[in-house]
């Protein structure tokens, strides 16, 4: 057993982790932009409630979030019949793992984008309006480019969070090799069995590489955007 002999099960876990994290970020991002925009730009009744709801997964024990997902989206959960009618199963599937990761990453992504939005000078948007830009064009050609660094930062933080998500995932979709076993749950699984130090070392190395890679990528992107 060496540090480089990655087993097929471990490779599956790596592949699944990447897939789950990417899908989670891709799912969260558009909704996160919308929610961040609403939270940053509008004051309305229920503003505090929405804000608290968005941040809930950040403060709840992940096990609780996972359980709530099960209650809502499990086969016998609140939306179970609807999902079944649509032919979608989330509990104990990789799609469910992506949903759990997305829910856990969501508050972090919203926070980063909201901060970026609050730093945008609304007077620039007003000026763009007087130049003939409709609200949609103002958002696409003024607001979006200006929050791009925040958007990228949010996506990277969300990706890292999704990659490492464990508690909600294992509660909602369990730990099925090849289906829902991500890198984090695979590490947990091998830690349960004595004498698996090499496997643990390999997967921890993989985790380190992935996380470092994400951070480096965000640095490079941020620098590129500043230079523009």
């Amino acid at each position: 057993m060496s540090l480089f002999a990655v087993s097929p099960v471990e490779l599956d876990a790596l592949r699944l982790s990447l897939w789950v994290a990417l899908v989670a970020v891709a799912l969260s991002l558009p909704l996160a932009v919308a929610v961040a925009y609403v939270l940053a730009r509008y004051r309305f009744w229920g503003h505090g409630l929405l804000n608290a709801l968005v941040h809930l997964p950040l403060v709840l024990p992940p096990v609780v979030t996972g359980y709530l997902l099960l209650v809502a989206f499990g086969r016998k959960g609140t939306f179970g019949p609807v999902l079944e009618a649509l032919g979608v199963q989330l509990a104990f599937t990789s799609a469910g793992a992506a949903l759990a990761a997305a829910v856990m990453a969501f508050p972090l992504i919203v926070r980063a984008i909201r901060l970026a939005l609050e730093a945008v000078d609304p007077r620039l948007e007003e000026a763009a309006g007087t130049l003939g830009a409709s609200p949609i064009k103002v958002f696409s050609f003024v607001t979006l480019p200006l929050i791009l660094p925040g958007l990228v930062a949010g996506a990277v933080v969300g990706f890292a969070k999704a990659l490492g998500e464990f508690g909600a995932t294992i509660t909602f979709v369990s730990n099925i090799p090849g289906e829902t076993q991500t890198l984090a749950s695979a590490i947990y699984a091998v830690l349960q069995v004595p004498g698996q130090e090499a496997a643990v070392g390999r997967m921890i190395t993989l985790s380190l590489i992935l996380s470092f890679g994400a951070l480096l990528l965000s640095e490079v992107l941020a620098r590129k955007m500043v230079r523009r």
Partner: peptide, 13 residues
């Protein structure tokens, strides 16, 4: 955006 009024503010924006 549909008024066709150009506006020069105190600051260039």
């Amino acid at each position: 955006h549909r008024r066709a009024v150009g506006y020069l503010f105190q600051e260039p924006r």
